[in-house]
Simulated assay, not measured.
Amino acid sequence: MASQSLQLSTSDGVSTLTLNNSAKHNAMNFAMWQALPDLLQRVAADHASRVLVLTGAGERAFCSGNDVSEFDKVRSTPAQIEHYNGLQRTVCERLSKLSKPTIAMVDGYCLGAGLEFALLCDFRYCTPASRFAVPAVKLGLPYRYEDIVKLLDVIGPAPTREMVLRGRQVAGERAAEIGLVHHLAPSREALIREVGELAAELAAAAPLSLAAAKITINEALRRDAEPDLALCQKLADEVYASHDFIEGRAAFTAKRKPRFEGR
């Protein structure tokens, strides 16, 4: 356990990071933003962790956004706004650059910052009870360029205009229709089971291959610069030179499951 509001555990190669502020539908408060960078760094550095599942405590919310009730104290002056936004960018950068596969397990509200977290994950699974929204226009907040780009890249311009300009909630079924989520589970029980199956599948795969593939996909989707092709080639070369490449070939020849070590 990392703190009362954030819980991190790892088992069988799968790390689970739980947003635990259920009294406020797992809204992100300032203390949670401060703690998240170190927790994500721990996941990145933990060799035993091969996959990260991000979820919310309870059965009503993944994350309902930021805790607006504390904005007068922590996000009202120009200096406070700059510091708060800087923390958010640090967290989002570390989540997006995590070389391990990430899964957002959504049940209930996924609003504002919660939607941003989900968009930064490689996989998004949800239930029909889930509700996705960008409520910025109803709170008098800006929705910044980098945040809109995340949504555009996933669902395209028409649904993005609908979500951002109207600020209305999108139900789980509609989220699946527009490609906002990868999979719609029929119930919470099915969601937990199916995310567990996906996480186990990813944890059993070759970590270096996964990292190289994820980073290469991210490079191909970059908007701020040309893809770093030299980096992509370097990662591919490292995979070819790895012990896991030898193990993968040996397991295929012997018709057994490979035992990848991430080296």
Rank of each mutant, 00 (worst) to 15 (best):
M1R: 03
S3H: 01
Q4R: 08
Q7C: 04
L8W: 01
S11R: 03
D12T: 12
S15N: 06
S15I: 10
T16V: 15
L17E: 02
N20R: 03
N21V: 09
N21Y: 01
N21F: 01
K24N: 15
K24P: 05
N26V: 11
A27V: 06
M28I: 15
N29H: 10
F30I: 13
A31T: 14
A31N: 11
M32K: 00
W33D: 10
Q34C: 07
A35P: 06
A35M: 05
L36K: 00
P37H: 01
A45N: 07
A45Y: 00
A45I: 07
H47N: 11
H47A: 15
H47R: 11
R50P: 14
L52H: 03
L54C: 09
G56L: 04
G58S: 06
E59M: 08
R60Q: 15
G65V: 11
G65R: 01
N66G: 15
D67G: 05
F71A: 13
K73P: 07
S76Y: 10
S76K: 08
T77D: 13
T77R: 01
E82Y: 09
H83N: 12
H83R: 10
N85W: 04
G86N: 12
V91G: 02
C92Q: 14
E93V: 12
K100D: 08
P101E: 04
T102M: 07
T102G: 10
T102E: 03
T102N: 05
I103C: 09
A104I: 13
D107C: 12
G108L: 09
Y109A: 15
L115N: 02
F117T: 06
L119P: 05
C121L: 08
R124I: 15
T127S: 06
A129G: 13
S130I: 14
A133T: 08
P135G: 12
P135F: 00
A136H: 11
A136L: 13
L139W: 11
G140P: 13
L141E: 08
Y143L: 11
K150N: 11
I155F: 04
A158E: 15
T160A: 12
R166F: 14
R168Q: 12
R168D: 14
A171I: 13
G172H: 02
E173F: 06
E173G: 10
G179Q: 02
L180I: 12
V181Q: 00
V181N: 01
L184N: 01
S187W: 09
R188A: 10
A190N: 09
A190V: 14
L191M: 04
I192T: 04
E194C: 07
V195R: 00
G196V: 12
A200D: 07
A200M: 03
E201K: 02
E201R: 02
L202F: 07
A203E: 00
A204C: 10
P207H: 05
S209V: 13
S209Q: 03
A211N: 04
T216E: 04
I217Q: 01
N218A: 13
N218W: 06
N218H: 14
L221C: 14
L221H: 09
R222P: 11
D224S: 14
V239T: 03
Y240I: 14
Y240Q: 10
S242P: 09
H243L: 12
D244Q: 04
F245R: 01
E247F: 02
G248H: 00
A250E: 05
A251Y: 01
A251S: 09
T253Y: 00
A254R: 01
A254C: 10
K255C: 06
K255Y: 00
R256L: 13
R256T: 15
R256H: 05
P258E: 05
P258F: 06
G262V: 14
G262W: 07
